[in-house]
Nucleic acid binder design. Structure first.
Ligand SMILES: [Mn+2]
Ligand SMILES: [Mn+2]
Ligand SMILES: [Zn+2]
Ligand SMILES: [Zn+2]
Lengths: 136, 136
DNA sequence: TCCTACGATGGACTTCGTCCAAGTCAAGAA
DNA sequence: TTCTTGACTTGGACGAAGTCCATCGTAGGA
């Protein structure tokens, strides 16, 4: 994740301990944390970090394209640091576990012209739902 | 939508004016209203209907499979009465307009076996994002 | 080392949604 | 038709997720 810190510095960010710790929490594969989970883990390293700062930092990372927001049905948004590799999600209906997946094919191309209603289609988000081995 | 009312009666529902009016509001194509929009429109016909009843009724319709919940990124859930025809969604990033679309191809089949992590995959939800003609 | 604009803080506030005790009424029984 | 009763509705309190803002603190350049 020092890659991320380097990129942020390059973008003119002040490197504060709060931003560093949020970036460290958002490291690894298949990471899809809620803002509250990010705050809890960040607070384990830097006890006085505020919720507002976590929200601010996550919002900035999303705006920079360094982190993705993953939509949920009625639950808190999840933040995904794997923004450099295009991917989709497989979600367990039982325990909520989220895995990164890479379907083959061209999902955008699968949308016929007459079904586009004049829209300029820019991206597609796919969520596979199923039951994981542990929940089966 | 009297079809829906008939099915609900068949399932043993008491047919109250509140439930009738919610069912009437959820009629038509490309309908993807928030709970609050349903409440506003229902209240235009039945002024004293409460928010709690709208939420209760929507939750019951979802549980019966008569209405779908459409996930959003950080905004209020949308309720979709088109639950009888499998379809996906095209969303305008500008104004939030939602259209029903029917992509060709087999999205579930596009997920390779080695990307399923042992899950039993049951369904797939696809959201196309773009800019509508009005917002362009 | 000093300055200052950018960032952090916490608490008020908003939005979306759930829960509950009390009152109401749809629909079957008689 | 009237009676009865449990299912339904109501408004308001409550809760979770997220935003906003005035004020304070500090990273990093001069
Ligand atoms: Mn991911
Ligand atoms: Mn739809
Ligand atoms: Zn599971
Ligand atoms: Zn639009």
């Amino acid at each position: 994740m020092s890659d991320l810190l380097r990129r942020l510095r390059g973008r003119g960010w002040r490197m504060t301990s709060q931003r560093r710790v949020v970036a460290e929490v958002l490291d690894g594969d298949h990471v899809h944390l809620t803002a509250d989970e990010v705050h809890q883990r960040a607070a384990a390293r830097l006890p006085e970090i505020s919720r507002a700062t976590v929200y601010n930092t996550l919002g900035e990372l999303v705006a920079l394209g360094e982190v993705l927001e993953v939509s949920t049905v009625g639950r808190a948004k999840r933040y995904d640091p794997n923004a450099r590799t295009l991917h989709q999600h497989l979600v367990c209906s039982g325990c909520g576990m989220v895995r990164d997946v890479h379907p083959v094919g061209d999902a955008i191309g699968d949308l016929p012209e007459e079904e586009r209603f004049g829209f300029t289609v820019g991206s597609v988000e796919i969520t596979y739902r199923g039951v994981c081995p542990g929940c089966a």
